Simulated scan of single mutants.
Amino acid sequence: MNDTQHERWVWEYDPDRENVVGGLPGAVVAQVEKIADDLVSLCNMGIDVTELGEGGPRGRPGGVRRMQLSPDGWVQVLPAPRLRMLAVVQVTPPFQHL
């Protein structure tokens, strides 16, 4: 077993925080970050998150996954198993925050 297999999963905004959640209310950002934290926790428990949420053709894991954010918003994440990283790439806030 090499050192990479012992590394824990992390998450980050891609390309950066300002481009993904800049200008959104703090409550929305907190919800986005909780989703990312929860997904990383699942990964660190050994659960494959590449099939969670919506995205890609049915039955094929991977690619950008869309997760529900509040009743009518979305957060899109890209799990990168080889890097042990989850990238938060886009947020569509709930309608009342647009």
Rank of each mutant, 00 (worst) to 15 (best):
Q76C: 15
L39V: 06
L98Y: 12
A27F: 03
V77C: 10
N44I: 00
M45H: 13
N19M: 12
F95I: 10
N44W: 01
D16I: 03
D16C: 06
V49A: 04
W9E: 03
A87L: 12
P15W: 11
M45K: 14
G73Y: 01
N19Y: 11
V21Y: 00
W9L: 09
Q5H: 04
P61D: 11
P79W: 05
L52H: 09
C43R: 10
G23K: 10
P61Y: 07
A27M: 09
T92K: 14
D3I: 09
P15F: 10
I47R: 14
L42P: 06
N19S: 15
V21M: 01
P15A: 08
D38Y: 02
D38P: 03
A30K: 04
G46Q: 04
L83W: 04
Q76G: 01
V10K: 13
V40D: 07
R65H: 01
P25N: 08
D37G: 08
S70M: 12
A36M: 01
P81Q: 00
L86D: 03
H97P: 02
V28N: 04
S41L: 08
A87K: 15
G22C: 05
P57S: 10
V21D: 06
M67A: 02
W74Y: 04
L86Y: 11
R58P: 12
R8H: 10
L24C: 00
P61M: 02
V28P: 00
R17C: 01
R65M: 05
E54R: 15
E18Y: 07
M67L: 14
V10S: 12
D72C: 02
C43Q: 08
N19R: 15
M67S: 08
L39I: 04
G59V: 00
Q96N: 13
G26Y: 00
Q31D: 13
V32L: 07
W11T: 07
Q68E: 13
V91P: 00
V10I: 10
H97V: 02
V20T: 09
L52D: 11
M85Y: 06
G56D: 07
S41C: 01
L98I: 04
Q76R: 15
Q5L: 09
E51D: 14
L86V: 13
A80L: 15
A87D: 14
R84M: 03
I47A: 12
M45Q: 14
